[in-house]
Design a protein around this nucleic acid. Structure first.
Length: 573
DNA sequence: TCCCCCACTTAGAATGGGGAGT
DNA sequence: ACTCCCCATTCTAAGTGGGGGA
């Protein structure tokens, strides 16, 4: 950052030009890739004998394999998961697979297992670890330096997840049929390494082998393995600050900006299609309208019974919507109520155009609650159609586009003469509007009520202070009225200032309380990280002289380095 | 056309570490 | 120095969407 602005900019522009040129060739993602391979979970250490496990009230010593799996459960005792039937059932089934035949014949009922001793032991352990955190920190740092980076095309790049996931109990979100199942330990023999032929290949731990070493530069991952719960592949990939991720991110926003140029045409088109003679075209047009207007996800089909029952737009079922020809003072209201990604509930009531409403009534005819709303549509059909409307257009581009354009519009409406803290508050409001659009929710933090109470206490105290200060001011005024001397005049001024200061402090606390309350169930991070073109925020900061640190923390600045360099104050999404 | 596989982005929860307040 | 709380970071699950083969 020591170089002059114009140099920095042109360097970055050149880099982007280079990115673009390199991209357009043969689909290869890199020319050289060298890394040290992943870091494995530490081997299991059997519990000391003082840690007791009881079955049916009787002390029992488990052999290492069953003991290890028992510790996974014991560590989660305080978690709600361990009270759920499905979790317990899946856990117990998988746990029994790890038992010796003797253990298996004795342990037949999970309810008779007492893990309390183990649980206490691990709590004590994590306390102890906190005490000696210095050494551990150094250790982590050493591992990070050794395994946390790779060389890709002449650049040292940070790896995102260089540690292999440790074994444990699967924690699915929502009503997941597989929750509690044993996630098995990953060994070197499970790992496929990807690197360049002419690089120094990573060595497997002594006495082990990799499953495979390949040299595929059409993909970006450094290592992969197949996970045993869903049978899906997991990858080790680079950090968001890397060239390969940044470039992709930039492309994503460029595609969304291209959508901006033709979105009017597309909107007119789907409105026309609401009138089509063909059912499949009407369904496609209504679904696209929802994706555009409500920022719904595409909604791929899912394998029944393998995952939680969640839906997106194309997979909506009859039971997920209600139609109200009239509701309160509005006409043609559609009520949505379904579980989306991560089993987050989407609930919304929106008035739609009459034509959409009539179409929905048509789609619902002769259907059961469990039937598909759009029975002639799926994401593949929709995306093929979108591809014809614009090169590179898919359903998810609408989410990116609508999120980013919303932020830009909201920021434009702000008054420019606010103070910096007021501007930042407004920025967060705009961010929040996007998070609400995208339905980014979170569980209220466990400490939420308490921290709100603390804040309220502060506010109450401040209010008391204020009324005391006001009384003093009043007294000082009376004093001055009586004496009319300079000293009392000064005293009035002093008291007036104090009142003003306390008023400001109170205001600040109240704003903070409002902000926190409004954020109770809303997660801002996801939209900031994945949907809002960072150049909008960077341009806004530059235009109003707001330090970028007020908007993006260190990690975010690293991820968005390309945008921070590239965007000038007049950038338009 | 359908299905399955693969690679990648997007997601909320859990964890950890450091700073503010006492 | 200590505690508590908050935010950054880490973790890994859960989506999207393309491609290939039956």
């Amino acid at each position: 950052y020591s170089s002059p602005q114009h140099n920095k900019t042109s360097r970055r522009e050149l880099l982007l030009i280079r990115w673009e040129e390199e991209r357009s060739t043969d689909g290869s993602k890199w020319r050289f890739l060298e890394h040290k391979g992943p870091v494995f979970a530490p081997p299991y250490e059997p519990l000391p004998d003082k840690v007791k496990f009881y079955y049916d009230g009787k002390l029992m010593k488990l052999a290492a394999p069953a003991e290890e799996v028992a510790t996974f459960f014991a560590k989660m005792l305080d978690h709600e998961y361990t009270t759920k039937d499905v979790f317990r059932k899946n856990f117990f089934k998988d746990w029994r697979k790890e038992m010796t035949s003797e253990e298996k014949s004795k342990i037949t009922d999970l309810n008779k297992c007492n893990f309390a001793g183990m649980n206490e032991y691990f709590k004590a352990q994590s306390e102890a670890r906190k005490q000696m955190s210095k050494e551990e920190k150094q250790d982590n740092e050493r591992i990070l330096q050794e395994y946390g980076f790779c060389i890709m095309d002449n650049h040292k790049e940070r790896i995102g997840n260089f540690r292999i996931e440790p074994p444990g109990l699967f924690r699915g979100r929502g009503d997941h049929p597989k929750m509690g199942m044993l996630k098995r330990r990953i060994r070197p023999e499970d790992i496929i390494i990807n690197c360049s032929k002419d690089s120094k290949h990573p060595k497997p731990p002594p006495g082990t082998k990799w499953k495979e070493v390949r040299h595929d530069n059409k993909v970006t991952w450094l290592a992969s393995w197949t996970e045993n719960i869903q049978g899906s592949i997991k990858y080790i990939m680079l950090n968001p600050s890397s060239r390969i991720k940044g470039e992709k991110d930039w492309q994503k926003y460029e595609t969304a900006r291209r959508l901006k140029k033709c979105v009017d045409r597309i909107r007119n088109q789907y409105r026309e299609d609401w009138k089509s003679k063909e059912m499949r075209i009407r369904q496609r047009a209504v679904a696209l309208y929802f994706i555009d207007k409500l920022a719904l996800r595409a909604g791929n089909e899912k394998e029944e019974g393998e995952t939680a029952d969640t839906v997106g737009c194309c997979s909506l079922r009859v039971e997920h919507i209600n139609l109200y020809p009239k509701l309160d003072d509005q006409e043609y209201v559609v009520e949505f109520d379904f579980l989306g990604k991560d089993s987050i509930r989407y609930y919304n009531r929106i008035p739609v155009e009459k034509r959409v409403f009539k179409n929905l009534q048509l789609f619902l005819e002769n259907k059961q609650p469990g039937d598909d709303l759009f029975d002639r549509l799926n994401t593949s059909i929709l995306n093929k159609h979108l591809q014809e409307l614009m090169d590179g257009l898919t359903a998810k581009v609408f989410r990116t586009y609508n999120a980013s354009i919303t932020l830009q519009q909201q920021l434009k409406e702000l008054s420019s003469d606010d103070s910096v803290p007021a501007k930042i508050l407004s920025y967060n409001r705009a961010n929040r509007a996007v998070a609400i659009l995208c339905n980014h929710q979170r569980a209220p933090p466990k400490t939420f009520e308490k921290s709100m109470q603390n804040l309220q206490t502060k506010i109450d105290e401040k209010q008391k202070q204020l009324s005391a200060a006001r009384k003093q001011l009043k007294a000082a005024k009376a004093e001055h009225k009586a004496s009319h001397d300079d000293k009392s005049k000064k005293a009035v001024e002093v008291k007036r200032k104090a009142v003003q200061r306390i008023e400001e402090q109170l205001m600040k606390l109240q704003v903070q309380a409002t902000d926190r309350e409004e954020n109770k169930q809303i997660a801002l991070g996801t939209s900031k990280l994945n949907y809002l073109d960072p150049r909008i925020s960077v341009a806004w900061c530059k235009k109003f002289g707001i330090p970028i640190e007020k908007i993006y923390n260190k990690t975010q600045r690293e991820k968005f380095a390309w945008a921070i360099d590239m965007a000038e104050k007049d950038f338009e999404f």
